[in-house]
């Protein structure tokens, strides 16, 4: 995506029109005026993003090397890498030596991989259904969108109530059917709480994946399906041989969006299981250090590590899927 090639391409019609030198001069003047205006128009957005994203990010990096505390951010001393890792009196300290941090890293990765996989499988199924023509499709599509629109906090509360160990409808139904004998403490037990979190996240984000896949499905050429139907090829085979390869780019976009979202998960875990270590994500860990323990330096170190992990994942993805994302392509 070299910008210079775009330049000449874009200018071709204008250049062809400017036959006389005077008109050509006017053309470049207009161009220069436009480029100047472009930067002027970008300025407010760039200033806003610097104020809320760029500068705070740099400060977080900086604070992670200090002993800053929330009550008095100004009185911070540089302490080097002590928040990350330090050897003192025969023991290791710092985020990287904290088993709870590594537990939260594992929780986050586990949560992300499992929930995104489930979302992709169910999202594709829902998209295939919505792509079929049937009466009431608009109603079904609106219904499918509802979980997406509900605030994460609200969905966490709604599911917390349905998953309530004593009075929840889910335990009730499972016991009526006979799958379990005793109620399960979904949100409190170390074994099930991660599954409760995954359940809520999957419910909430299937619509997003389904809609992206649906958009891709609707752009597929109809003729190869007609040909497959004439040849009597089984629909399942058609799906794996024709549809799946064609929607893979859209699916990859959905996966990366969802993965990046899942790696920074906070709301659903915080509301459903609060600060329990068996479900704690990296974001929950960092915020707990920052706000509840008031240890801004240590919390910033955790935040920085989270940022690095996500940046690494993004770079790896961009490197692998370079061909799929073409910035500025028309």
């Amino acid at each position: 995506m070299s910008s210079s090639s775009h330049h000449s391409h874009q200018n071709a019609p204008l250049g062809a029109r400017s036959a006389t030198p005077a008109r050509r001069q006017r053309g470049t003047k207009v161009r220069r005026q436009r480029v100047k205006a472009a930067w002027l128009f970008l300025a407010p957005m760039l200033i806003a993003l610097t104020l809320v994203a760029g500068w705070p990010l740099l400060r977080t990096f900086f604070l992670s090397f200090t002993d800053a505390s929330l009550s008095d951010l100004g009185a911070a001393n540089l302490i080097g890498f002590e928040n990350y890792l330090v050897y003192d009196n025969g023991r290791w300290f710092g985020v990287l030596a904290d088993p709870v941090w590594w537990q939260s890293v594992w929780n986050t990765v586990y949560f992300s991989v499992v929930s995104v996989s489930l979302e992709v499988v169910f999202g594709v199924i829902v998209a295939l259904i919505l792509n079929a023509e049937f009466k009431g499709r608009v109603i079904v599509r609106a219904a499918v969108l509802i979980p997406w629109a509900i605030p994460t906090i609200v969905s966490a509360q709604m599911w917390a109530w349905m998953l309530n160990d004593q009075f929840g409808i889910i335990n009730h139904l499972l016991m009526v059917v006979g799958i379990i004998d005793n109620p399960i403490a979904w949100t409190a037990s170390a074994t099930y709480s991660m599954w409760a979190v995954i359940m809520v996240d999957v419910w909430k984000t299937i619509p997003f994946v389904a809609l992206l896949v649906l958009a891709a499905l609707q752009m597929l050429p109809k003729d190869c399906y007609e040909a497959a139907e004439v040849d009597g090829i089984h629909p399942v085979r058609v799906f794996f041989k024709v549809t799946l390869p064609l929607i893979t780019p859209a699916l990859m976009v959905a996966v990366i969006f969802r993965l990046l979202d899942a790696l920074r998960v906070f709301d659903v875990i915080y509301v459903l299981t609060s600060n329990s270590t068996s479900t704690m994500s990296m974001s929950v860990y960092a915020r707990q250090q920052l706000v509840e323990f008031q240890d801004v330096g240590y919390g910033s170190a955790a935040s920085t590590l989270l940022f690095l992990i996500i940046a690494l994942a993004t770079v790896a993805y961009l490197y692998i899927g370079r061909k799929q994302i073409q910035l500025g392509g028309d």
């Binding site: 994203a53 500068w55 990010l57 906070f266 915020r287 940022f307 993004t314």
Partner: peptide, 28 residues
């Protein structure tokens, strides 16, 4: 010139984990 860089920055910001700016933003 710089258009794709700006687009890349915007894409980058949209992938930011919110918690990564929490302490810096708190200060601001």
């Amino acid at each position: 010139r710089g258009r794709s860089t700006v687009l890349l920055v915007i894409l980058g910001v949209s992938m930011f984990p919110q918690v990564a700016v929490l302490s810096g933003l708190f200060e601001v």
